[in-house]
């Protein structure tokens, strides 16, 4: 089990969260018609063995989307930030 330190609710079990995929990919703006950009955003992933930034939502809690820095080799979580703040 992972324990994720939600910035709003404190440390919680990962089954309170929903995984939301890679947070390092950049979403094109909504009316961007560039096929390549959307293709990269949806399908192309680094899949690193090591530090990874990913989205988790605290669904059974504050419902905020978070950006979690997790090491894919040992599941150690280095950082948790709200997605809105991480973007700002």
């Amino acid at each position: 089990m992972l324990r994720i330190e939600c910035p709003y609710c404190g440390p919680r079990d990962h089954d309170e969260f929903r995984y939301g995929g890679d947070a390092s990919v950049i979403r094109p703006v909504h009316d961007d018609a560039d096929f390549e950009a959307w293709y990269r955003y949806v399908f192309v992933r680094e899949n690193p063995a090591g530090p990874h930034r990913e989205y988790w939502q605290h669904v059974i809690g504050c419902r905020q989307w978070l950006v979690v820095g997790r090491d894919t080799r040992n599941h150690e979580i280095a950082s948790v930030r709200s997605a809105r703040e991480a973007r700002a």
Partner: peptide, 17 residues
Amino acid sequence: AADVMSRLEFLLDTAWP
């Protein structure tokens, strides 16, 4: 229902804050 809700929140939190 749950997936749609979560998706809308995702878009507002990450894509179009």
